[in-house]
Amino acid sequence: MSCTKVAVIGVGLIGGSFGLCLKDALGDAVYITGLCRTEASMRQAVALGAVDEASTDLAAVVGGADIIYLSPPVLQIVPMVRRILPYLKQGAILTDAGSTKGYLYKAMQEILPPYVHYIPGHPMTGREKSGVSAATKDLFAGKAYVIIDTPDVPPETKDRLMDVLRYTRANFTTLDLAQHDRCAAVISHVPHLAAAGLVTLLNRSGDDLTSCLKLIGGGFKDTTRIASSNADMWADICMTNAKPIADALRTLQDILDNVISAVETGDRQAIHAYFTASKERRDSILLDAAQKFDTN
């Protein structure tokens, strides 16, 4: 097997985990170069085995790369692509781990030359911790991984990318751009905003704050875990997926308005039905989701 060269731009949690799983599966059959924000994180990425080589020299990182994996915060991706364009070889494949797709796809169509292919991707995984020190080779395993099946990319190019991505052991599925952004808003983006909202609610408990802190247990910790995620990443997501997020938040607001009304009027039947329906649906969700993935 010939050696595949992969360049990872942004060797943090996602980019570092991508590198770790490829090196674990392919060993010397893949050579991974990486770009990090600091010299310290570059040294750490090499020490952890997430990349074979790290550099601040863009030509050294992406020159000759077959696949360029873009995993910085969303608003940093397009400026970075502009910087690396002069060093990309003919036939290079760009893919990304960005949580919003419509914004990126439109920008890429405007700046990429015809000899470079862009295949949007989104691994639906992560942790509340960030940085390459939080990376793990199993981060993608068994998790949803969306590939946007764009008509302008030749099938053989997509196959070349998938031959590498499958080593993540993720569950791959395809969505169109708009559907992805709507679904990501409901499944990922609004839950993060809601988790941050619950922490903000606690902070606004006034004179009760100290007493509330004494009562914190598993329920609050589990529900708000994702509020500890990277603020830069989530601010960028909100800026680049604004309408689907706002639409989903308004729907959630309507749901909570109905709950508030039922609580204030003492409508126990409505509250009971609310909890019953959500319990039954959640209990069936994991099985339903597992059966919808294309694992080939």
Rank of each mutant, 00 (worst) to 15 (best):
L201V: 04
K292V: 06
D208A: 15
Q253K: 11
Y145P: 04
G16S: 08
K221I: 09
L256Q: 09
K89A: 11
D138K: 07
C212Y: 15
V164F: 04
I32W: 01
A65L: 03
G34Q: 03
G64C: 09
L94W: 06
V6T: 02
G34E: 10
A289K: 11
Y274M: 12
L58E: 11
R282K: 14
F172E: 01
C212W: 12
A97K: 04
A25G: 02
D138P: 01
V78N: 05
Q109D: 12
A144K: 04
R282T: 08
M124E: 02
A107P: 03
V190T: 06
Y87H: 15
D222A: 11
T157R: 13
M1S: 14
V259I: 15
Y103T: 07
T265S: 12
R82Y: 10
Y115S: 14
I9R: 03
A242G: 01
D257K: 06
C212M: 15
T136W: 02
P114I: 04
L58H: 03
K129N: 09
D222I: 11
D232Q: 14
I68K: 04
V263W: 04
L193C: 12
V199Q: 05
C21F: 02
R250C: 07
I255V: 13
D181M: 05
R169C: 08
Q76N: 14
G19N: 00
K137G: 04
T223M: 12
L22P: 02
N230L: 06
C238S: 12
A227H: 10
S2H: 08
R83M: 13
I119L: 13
F172V: 11
P114Q: 09
I77H: 09
G10I: 01
N203R: 13
L70D: 05
Q179C: 07
T157Y: 07
D257S: 13
D208V: 06
T223F: 08
Y87N: 07
A196Y: 02
E39R: 11
I245D: 01
T33A: 13
L209N: 08
Y105S: 10
A25C: 10
V74K: 07
A231S: 13
S211F: 09
I226A: 04
V11H: 00
G266L: 08
T224Y: 08
Q44D: 15
K279M: 12
N258W: 04
T56Q: 10
Y105E: 14
G126L: 05
V132W: 02
